[in-house]
Write a protein that binds this DNA or RNA. Structure first.
Lengths: 349, 349
DNA sequence: CGTGCGTTGCAAAGCGCTTTGCAAGGAGCA
DNA sequence: TGCTCCTTGCAAAGCGCTTTGCAACGCACG
């Protein structure tokens, strides 16, 4: 213990105070064997008075379970990941489990390793892993898969097989977004997609293609600056478009801002659809039309999967749970203007 | 271990593989006693090949330290608390500590108890506690204070003494916000303060009073609906005002929305200043003028305080670290209109 | 009054690791 | 060659708990 803090009581000390053996104290606590009611009551009173709680380290050494799970998210300050975290935490709590979390974002490989190490050294009984475009050590992950209770949330990692996954219906989300623009009458649409290697990116783009198979697809990273640059290059090259399908809300927000800075109005000149429904999406002006992913529910479901297996001592499956998404229509989309596309430069061919 | 997962190797098994005793393996790992280089190399190779990591439970049982700290926040999905969490986590990582977090919000008292229990059962070596207006068990907290390594972040709890605290300069923040409105020329200002019992509320209101000692002060909770109701009652009673000093951004956002719904324009008719600088503050329109609290820094500093004491085995101080705040001027504030206050109803006295 | 059974407590082993006391062996020196 | 000293490995204790084997006791029954 740290300087100045009293050492907690041990079970043996409680036993001595009660005039019994620590076996008896343990049985009073666990109820796994009958104990004389009078004795039990005396022991309980002493435990209560002393504020005694069995040391968790000794318990987990004995039981082989830490009652802790891990959660790795790219960035806890991102409202979408925070929603997942909340879902995971509240579910874990219901199972009497604690959650150790890691905001892996600006992490070097060493950090990832360290957190996956929590699995190896049995600090945690299982892990909910929310992937990202950050270069994680896929090999490390593959080494863990199948050997430890592991669940992927949000992002499916096809190159790490046999890990159960909770994701949303990215394909349908893409479809819904595209259909919305198509129904509004848009015909010239560009796609500002997320990072190439991500499975979710691929799926969303596939969904977009259901209505705009020939749309120009530009890949970038999930941040506003990247989106702004993409918009610049679009505008700079005189590409004609009245609608933007964004890979997520960050891209959408970056695009809206950039379009407005370039003198175009959203949605009058250009309609923009996002993906995720982060907090800002509903709060910004124009409020963003987007595809809502059930973040908290994803967190809940993935934790549930993990904890179910842990507490029932079952093997983990390897199937993908797909949660439905929802189109949220707000103010960033409208029918295209009748006149020539305002993004088209006169001097372009 | 859970079904289907192999049991991790023990140090004894590594020792057997290497043809040495586990003492030697331990010394190879810790370096606390010299080991024959050849032996050490052989042992290390086997450890590497087997992917062996010492079981953390056994380690902490032995050492009395779990290398884990706790973090209690009211709501992890709130961008301000998420910033604190990020700061805590990144600092803990630097100290090779893990963070167990609890989003205490919609929590019954039992939940709070459970998480404070992590201290008692030594699952965590210390705790960063971010208070809120939620009724926590102050008695429980008081029982812990001084007996366990504990730090308060963001909210000072004067009724739980001798706990080191990292807060921001709420008084100065109040002052800065008030001065800003005053300098713009506002004279009729109302205060939509946070919950009464909070120390931060009191301080901010004191700061506001430096420039508007006679302002009407209404207390509510830190959410938009509460703020909307307060605005309604102000408007309904024909109170004249050209500026609003809000207890935090949520209140400010709720107020702005409500004012706009009531046909008033921000900032043309009414100026609004928030507090915190949450993500939405900068993204909404009109972008919110607010007082920025250094959330991540608060997280860092409080974790630093805790981990410093833990790793150096020092007693914890009990002083309050006050971090500076900053006025961020955006678009929700402007000089008052020359004409009569638009919030004043004709039929009011 | 003796046998048998159910009840309730204790002692001891063991979870996987760290740490300490010892001892075997080698090197250095006289 | 004989002595000390240092190096390096082993055995064993102990961290705080759970669990199991055993024994003592009381009771009902024949």
């Amino acid at each position: 213990m740290t300087a100045g803090f009293e050492r907690p009581l041990t079970m043996g000390e409680i036993a001595r105070l009660a005039g019994v053996s620590s076996t008896t104290v343990s049985h009073v606590l666990s109820g796994k064997r009958p104990v004389n009611p009078a004795t039990a009551e005396r022991v309980r009173a002493i435990i209560e008075r002393a504020g005694y709680v069995p040391a968790s380290a000794a318990r987990s050494l004995q039981s082989g379970r830490s009652l802790l799970i891990g959660l790795v998210v790219p960035d806890i300050t991102h409202s979408f990941f925070a929603r997942i975290a909340k879902g995971v935490e509240e579910t874990a709590r219901a199972y009497d489990y604690g959650v150790i979390f890691c905001s892996s974002s600006q992490s070097d490989v060493a950090t990832g390793r360290r957190y996956l190490g929590l699995l190896r050294d049995q600090t945690i009984d299982g892990l909910v892993y929310v992937g990202s475009d950050v270069a994680v050590d896929r090999d490390e992950l593959r080494g863990l898969a199948g050997r430890f209770p592991l669940v992927f949330a949000d992002e499916e990692l096809p190159d790490v097989p046999s890990v159960p996954t909770v994701a949303c219906d990215n394909f349908d989300g893409g479809r819904l977004a595209a259909r919305h623009l198509h129904e509004l009458g848009h015909r010239k649409v560009v796609v500002l997609a997320g990072p190439v290697p991500l499975h979710s990116t691929t799926e969303r783009v596939r969904g977009f293609a259901e209505f705009f198979p020939n749309a120009l697809v530009l890949h970038g990273s999930f941040d506003r600056d990247s989106a702004a640059r993409l918009v610049d290059s679009l505008l700079g090259n005189g590409v004609a478009f009245t609608g933007v399908l964004a890979g997520n809300d960050d891209i959408a927000i970056g695009a809206v801002r950039r379009l407005e800075e370039s003198g175009l109005r959203v949605p009058e000149d250009v309609s923009v659809v996002g993906f995720d429904d982060v907090e800002l999406a509903g709060g910004m002006r124009p409020a963003l039309t987007t595809i809502r992913q059930p973040g908290q529910e994803m967190g809940r479901r993935s934790a549930e999967l993990l904890l179910q297996a842990l507490t029932d001592d079952l093997p983990m499956g390897d199937d993908v749970t797909v949660l439905p998404v929802e189109l949220i229509v707000r103010d960033s989309t409208a029918p295209p203007r009748a006149s020539a596309s305002p993004t088209e430069r006169k001097e372009s061919r």
